[in-house]
Design a binder for these strands. Sequence first.
DNA 1: TAAACTGTATTACAATTATAGTACAGTAGT
DNA 2: ACTACTGTACTATAATTGTAATACAGTTTA
Lengths: 136, 136
Amino acid sequence: MIKIDPNDGTPIYLQIVRQIKYMIASGAIREDDELPPVRVLAQQLVINPNTVAKAYRELEFQGLIYTRPGAGTYVAKRRILFSDEERLRIIQEKIESLIVEAQNLNFTLEELAKIFNERLTKIYKQQTEEKGNERD
Amino acid sequence: MIKIDPNDGTPIYLQIVRQIKYMIASGAIREDDELPPVRVLAQQLVINPNTVAKAYRELEFQGLIYTRPGAGTYVAKRRILFSDEERLRIIQEKIESLIVEAQNLNFTLEELAKIFNERLTKIYKQQTEEKGNERD
DNA sequence: TAAACTGTATTACAATTATAGTACAGTAGT
DNA sequence: ACTACTGTACTATAATTGTAATACAGTTTA
């Protein structure tokens, strides 16, 4: 499931953070689902358990998971850890960074808008489909 | 102009890279404009010239600036360094990351689309204004 | 209660980052 | 030619960061 790319450049623990954030955002794992124990995931990825622990610590800090020491690590309830101002600031910063990157890659604003909105539409359809299939 | 935040977490040389990329994308500096000499910028920011040099090296690698050793460092001509596939891959990855972040901050897709398109519209207006004012 | 699991803390080591100093080579203007 | 500027290269050093190995403490389950 989670994969490490040694040539990625970004630290291993951040690669884990990114992928788990993606799994949470996409609904692949949900509230109170248990994450693999640090030793299990570490063995799968052939890395040190501490590296996984560091990733979990970071995710806990961001409020996406919670750990019960001795018991396990679980996906946290969707909740608001930041003020509206802070949330808006974070997302606007990300948007700004995306636009800068796009411009420096010679995308026009129109092209960027098109690619972005297409992706959003696709996800939106996926999510409404899933809503309709909720039978568990 | 360029500012270093010691509490930013990201390395100084990357903070410089990010800010210069922004200045290029926003049109604050343009083709063949000269960047401050490494020693000058280093003195302004109270850092080592080597750190600035490292930032310039990174920007040159990304094709955004060019250096004429002995002469100075300049903003490069907008050109395509990557294949269309590569450009698309990079920008789609950034978009994906933005959407994940937004979802984990409890923004709906609609909210994200709204914030994003508002920002894009604002920039678009700025740029068309500048086009109209080009008198240099 | 005992065994097998969980995350955590401590320590050590390697890689990266930042700084500093020095020297070098190319360019520009006088 | 000379001077003052440019970026570059190199070495060394310190601090931070990322990873690893080991031991520890709490929880679960039988």
